[in-house]
Design a protein around this nucleic acid. Structure first.
Lengths: 314, 314
DNA sequence: GACCACGATATCCGTGGTGTATCGGGAAAG
DNA sequence: CTTTCCCGATACACCACGGATATCGTGGTC
């Protein structure tokens, strides 16, 4: 009473194909007697005669026909198991969940994501627009594989992450085309302080605070929005003067005007993060694309991998 | 370098389920070391690491996840192979191709086919209306499994068939409700000889010839049709007096009238045939239904099987 | 009636899967 | 920091099972 093994299936399929014990055995690279015994064992195990041995050849019975259909399917599955495992190990299949802030979707991401999609067409790429805090939380919760935020994740768990800068910005203002600032190349912080401001929801408590260190009042009165598209939209509606990263200039709206803020005020970098211990081959493949397509980020990743090769096998 | 066997799949699935070598081995009824070696062998054979052994448990890698999906599918196929083989051996699946003359579809077949369909709902039942010669040829060609014709197959190959009678008929005439015969209980052969006749296509050369042995002229002038429904239809159109088996009375048409032919003239029996050497379990199951549902045919089949048990394993 | 082809059976051999015993490493507890 | 414990890997012996060779039984054919 031994279990049915893949060997039995291979033998049965070969026997059905050749209709002859001797030739089937030869095609399997074994002698005829073991094939007879294995087929007999299979029939005993299944409990039904699977082949009719006649003088004109060996033919599957009705039960044999039904069995062979499944047997072929099972063998095909086993073959595909090996194929799929190899493909998954090369990062050719699987999924990659990316959380990203809207501004990164304007500049570095379209190129990278496009190339990655082309190089790994079977990977399910799940991109979600989020805010910086959401992005960090999602990565630590395991709901994301890659996070792109501004300033990178901080706090508990951040030491298990690897973070690389993927873009620098300075602050720019955006106003309606009808606003007095429209047409000006720049505005000063003093001018801004006199205007109603539209800023990112949590920017007041984070990167904008130092700018209005003298008098934080304008930030307190500011309207807020959760992404730069909404900021630009509100500015276009004359809801106020929008503030955002210089990357925001890539929003192609004819009804707004962008001014540099003087003095030039550097914003926290766009940062890409992933779990240092993440063994995902898809992530490795993604990082490979990032490294190849962003010269500065690439060298940074090279460094990281050289110093800490256990991070992931790119 | 040994092939991947079903054992490897079972072990990998169990390991993934338990996340623990010891417990997985226990669930498989083997000790822990062999499980370790078998998983290692599987990984070596597939060429990829399939499980990450951590201190918190054993988890599939990305390659392992992909492999396990296929592995589970392959094992399920193997299980279904056994199920399907057993079902096919019991005649619960498969197909049965039946060729049958129209008159048999009026009386004995509806009951038998209905019961068989209910007792073996997964068998694909292919019923084709044919003429007696077509039915015999189809059976000998292997295009049918069961043939129901009038008089049974004759000629080359008929000795490889088993044939049992499933219904007796005598000749009846069918006329339009507007015909002078309408309302009469019977007609004589002499009366028929004076009328234009509508008969089955090959009936003139076979079973009707003796009836008009004195003067075959009426048959020569007869219109012909390939089945009894058409005969009745032509009669209803006043194309002539139709002749057919008494079974034809079961055609429920209000526009025709049936008369017995005097003297009563027995027609060749309806016969059911199948290949004596046909091992099909579906056929066996079908014959079982026939035997149980037709008392006279059943005893005949019992006799046949008793005298010649090699025919088929009912 | 003898030969031939083919599958089944008998017997021996070797591989490999399994069990017992043990090692090694990492994490948690003291 | 040391000890302990847990767990997977390794070592090794055993034997069951798959495979090879030799032979038999049988049905079909010339």
């Amino acid at each position: 009473m031994v279990a049915v093994e893949a060997r039995h299936l291979r033998y049965a399929v070969a026997l059905a194909e050749h209709g002859h014990f001797g030739r089937a055995a030869a095609s399997l690279g074994i002698a005829q007697p073991p094939l007879s015994t294995q087929i007999a064992a299979l029939e005993r195990e299944v409990g039904e005669r699977l082949f009719d041995r006649t003088s004109r050849g060996v033919f599957p019975t009705a039960a044999g026909e039904a069995f062979l259909v499944r047997a072929r399917a099972a063998l095909a599955e086993m073959h595909r198991a090996r194929i799929d495992a190899a493909r998954a190990a090369r990062g050719e299949t699987g999924r990659l969940r990316i959380g990203v802030v809207a501004s990164a979707l304007l500049d570095p991401l379209p190129t990278v994501l496009g190339r990655f999609r082309r190089s790994r067409p079977e990977v399910r790429l799940i991109v979600q627009e989020m805010t910086t805090p959401e992005v960090a939380a999602g990565l630590l919760d395991g709901e994301l594989d890659v996070a792109v935020g501004r300033g990178g994740p901080r706090g508990a768990g951040a030491e298990d992450l690897v973070t690389v800068p993927i873009g620098a910005d300075h602050l720019v203002a955006v106003v309606s085309a009808a606003h007095p600032f429209a047409g000006q190349p720049g505005v000063t912080v003093e001018q801004l302080a006199a205007e109603p401001l539209v800023v990112e929801t949590d920017a007041a408590e984070s990167y904008l605070r130092p700018l209005f260190a003298d008098d934080p009042a304008p930030l307190g009165a500011a309207a807020t929005a959760r992404d730069i598209h909404t900021i630009a939209g509100l500015a276009a509606c004359c809801a106020g003067v929008g503030l955002g990263p210089s990357r925001m200039r890539l929003i192609a709206r004819p009804d707004v005007w962008f001014c540099d803020v003087a003095p030039r005020y550097r914003l926290p970098d766009l940062q890409m993060s992933f779990r240092a211990a993440d063994p995902s081959p898809v992530l490795a493949a993604f990082l490979d694309v990032v490294r190849r397509n962003c010269a500065r980020v690439g060298s940074r990743l090279d460094d990281l991998l050289a110093r800490h090769p256990a991070i992931t096998q790119v």
